[in-house]
Write a protein that binds this DNA or RNA. Structure first.
Lengths: 133, 133
DNA sequence: AATACAATGTTGTATATACAACTTATGAAC
DNA sequence: GTTCATAAGTTGTATATACAACATTGTATT
């Protein structure tokens, strides 16, 4: 056999993301929000008002997935949308406030992870992205 | 702010695994199986007869997740279990045969990915694992 | 202007995942 | 030997994800 089955790049990345997600999730218990939802809030914080599809492009998510993720955040009023055809969405005031509360917890988690990864570890992650994009 | 929100290690790993999963998935369309199920079959191929929980340990999966993943593979008779208390599970004959059919497709995908990643890319992935485990 | 097409969002369906609660059987303490 | 605690599996519930099918609207072609 050409490669060892244990080297499967897919399963290894899934496993790593489960491990890392666990770190973030453990900090989110006081909020009624998931690590994935946090990511979308952060993307919106960065990008301002955008078409929904832009989020899928950025995060490599299928249209339908974005649709449902957005819907959950809307339900909690963290996001508002223009009611037009192909509406644009953006953080609500409440969403902005949540982002501000999330940032310190997120930074703690990042500190933890970066102390494990070291400078080089972060570089490796960027390199993987460069090569797989 | 301490870090750029776009640097979130969690969302980046999730994104990478979605990208890579897509590569594997595109090769699996002729089989009624997912990339995740393929991983479990490969683990069983490697480990032989094991307690179910061992799979969770290996892949960093919650008990309940393993339980359901296994159930789906059992439904298609790729896996059999001893009917004892805390049964051990292993590949069935049909499961073994499927693994043999999957390996070439899996190798093709690995070739594709490794040609993107290069030698260094693979090393980076291992380094991330070493540091995050 | 009418029709066809393309792009985007939504919904149906199935799997993946985690957490909490429950079940059950083993093994330990007495 | 009885009771109790622990460990492992299962089920309930909720979110995450993808694909297929559908809906809608703007745009292009004629």
């Amino acid at each position: 056999m050409k490669y060892d089955l244990q080297l499967c790049i897919g399963s290894r990345l899934r496993r790593l993301s489960r491990i890392v997600d666990g770190h973030f999730r453990s900090k989110l218990s006081e909020f009624n929000i998931t690590e994935n939802q946090m990511t979308i809030l952060f993307v919106l914080n960065k990008m301002g008002k955008v078409e929904q599809g832009k989020i899928g492009q950025t995060l490599v998510l299928e249209r339908s997935t974005v649709s449902r993720n957005i819907k959950l955040l809307e339900k909690q009023n963290y996001i508002k949308r223009t009611s037009d055809y192909r509406p644009e969405i953006e953080l609500s005031k409440k969403g902005n406030e949540l982002v501000q509360k999330l940032i310190p917890l997120w930074e703690e988690t990042m500190d933890e992870l970066i102390s494990k990864l070291g400078e080089n570890g972060l570089t490796y992650l960027s390199e993987l992205e460069n090569r797989l994009n």
